[in-house]
Design a protein around this nucleic acid. Structure first.
Length: 372
DNA sequence: AATTCGGGGCG
DNA sequence: CGCCCAGAATT
């Protein structure tokens, strides 16, 4: 039996582990960001509940993608496809077109596959981490995030923001790839029984607005009192990462062909791999050397090719330099290719590198037309 | 455990 | 120009 005075102390004093969560939630009540998919703490307290479809859609879009980049895509998607049944009914091709420019295109394919599954099961998303984790495109982070945010159930949500915040709070010197287990344990111990969804969003908002990768605004941080990195004065040194391999340079040529009416010749890339399932202009392989002698042989079909410029594009694991050639072509589209009319080009499933190539040959071709 | 997947914004 | 971002799937 514990002495009576200790029992009283335990009841009247806040236990330390809850301190981080309660400070963070108090900060979040005042400083949370308004986002198109978010239910604010005030609305949530009034009984408004998030739409799991919108939370799922936003979380998939936000995988390795900044909030600002996602906003406009999110608005277009929910306008075109207001619920999961509508998305399931949409052709994959339309979804790829709407996703064009956002990157990591396997996300769009998995999005469609997931929508099909959920629609088949009555249009309701699973409300458990394990159930969500089994769906395509939903991994450890996204299943936890949907569980916490959409269903307000406790889950350990760890994204890049949370890894940064935790590694600074505890000055974790173990490199990130190794420290993930340790970080997860710290977060799990912090998750409050009340408002786990707001806690998750608060951690991420803190990482996005205060505990930023560079020049963190520690003077404004609600957790500065308990932050180890603030004491040592070097929060920017966390998290510790392993050195990255340098990017190889690849080169190739792109061929922009037009018909008399201005239509551009396009083709579809293989479903898997880089830019899988997206549309492209014909190109050589992306390691080939391009010079005067090899150009004609490298072109997928004969033409009076004229060199119009060079574009560069940096992918995650290599940099690409494409020499762009331009020609007028007569007759039908070669096998495996199709013509895209001038007013259709901006709506094609063209990744950014392909828009760059077309722009080099035909300035303005991929921009959306403005009615006047 | 390591690689393969885009693209953009910020210092 | 380097860094990293509301990561997942594959090998």
């Amino acid at each position: 039996m514990a002495p009576p005075d200790q029992t009283r102390k335990a009841q009247t004093r806040k236990p330390a582990p809850d301190d981080t969560a309660s400070r963070l939630l108090a900060w979040y009540d005042v400083h949370h960001r308004e986002l198109p998919w978010r239910v604010s703490p005030r609305e949530h307290a009034r009984g408004v509940r998030p739409d799991p479809y919108r939370i799922w859609l936003s979380e998939v879009m936000l995988q390795q993608t900044t909030v600002e980049a996602v906003k406009s895509y999110f608005r277009v998607f929910v306008e075109k496809w207001p619920d999961v049944e509508a998305l399931a009914a949409a052709p994959t091709e339309d979804i790829m077109k709407a996703w064009a420019g956002l990157g990591y295109y396997s996300r769009a394919r998995n999005l469609k596959a997931c929508a099909d599954l959920v629609a088949t099961r009555g249009g309701r998303f699973p409300d458990t981490e394990a159930g969500l984790r089994d769906l395509p495109g939903i991994g450890a982070y996204t299943s936890a995030a949907i569980t916490a945010i959409a269903f307000d159930r406790p889950a350990t949500v760890v994204d890049g923001n949370v890894e940064r915040v935790i590694s600074r709070l505890f000055s974790i010197t173990t490199p990130l790839s190794e420290a993930k287990t340790e970080i997860r344990a710290h977060v799990e111990a912090m998750v409050p029984a009340a408002r786990p969804g707001d806690f998750a969003q608060a951690m991420m908002d803190l990482g996005a607005t205060i505990c930023t990768p560079r020049r963190p605004r520690c003077m404004l941080c609600p957790l500065r009192g308990g932050c180890s990195a603030v004491v040592s004065g070097d929060p920017e040194n966390f998290p510790v990462r392993l050195p990255k391999a340098d990017k190889p340079q690849r080169r190739g040529a792109a061929f922009v062909a037009t018909r008399e009416d201005g239509a551009v010749l396009l083709r579809k890339r293989p479903e898997k791999g880089l830019l899988g399932g997206m549309t492209e202009v014909p190109t050589t392989g992306w390691t080939a050397r391009v010079d005067g002698a090899t150009t004609q042989a490298a072109a997928p079909f004969p033409g009076d090719w004229r060199r119009v410029g060079t574009i560069t594009h940096v992918f995650t694991h290599f940099a690409l330099e494409l020499e762009v050639f331009y020609a007028h072509i007569k007759g039908d589209a070669p096998a495996g290719h199709f013509w895209s009319r001038v007013h259709e080009i901006s709506g094609e499933a063209l990744p950014t590198v392909m828009k760059k190539a077309i722009e080099a040959a035909i300035p303005g071709a991929t921009k959306k037309q403005r009615p006047h």
